[in-house]
Design a protein around this nucleic acid. Sequence first.
DNA 1: AGCCTTTGACCAGCG
DNA 2: TCGCTGGTCAAAGGC
Length: 137
Amino acid sequence: MGPRVSADRSFDDGYNWRKYGQKLVKGCEFPRSYYKCTLPNCEVKKIFKRSFDGQIKEIVKGTHYHPKPQPARRSSAGAIMSNQEKTDKVSSLTAEEDGTPELSAPGTNDDIVEVAVPQLNSTNDEVDDDDPFSKKR
DNA sequence: AGCCTTTGACCAGCG
DNA sequence: TCGCTGGTCAAAGGC
């Protein structure tokens, strides 16, 4: 295992996240983790919830209005420099959000994005019907 | 030296 | 009005 990489940046989507809290909520036997974007102009918050069966749900509140930072952070000489993400991508993102709020959910506000991360559990059999929320995507 | 991680306590909102 | 839950901030320690 990595010296500093494990449950922290396991879901590193290219941005830098800083954990600012952890709380054990009722209903979940696992604690909830709160992450915040470390970018100066980004206050996007991310909440990691652990569902039953060990399914991880990533709730992202907010949107990144700038390109992803370079992986030049302290790490094992990453220097991948996969400059595939250009500012153009950002435009696309903003356009996407500005395009269609859809979601007829009355309680839906702002731009909360819920992403269910299916883990490679041993019982890799119910990756689809394993969703207790049955929310139409 | 700087940044990140972890735990506890406090505060706010809702029922 | 009180109680409970969720969420956030702060401080200390470690790498």
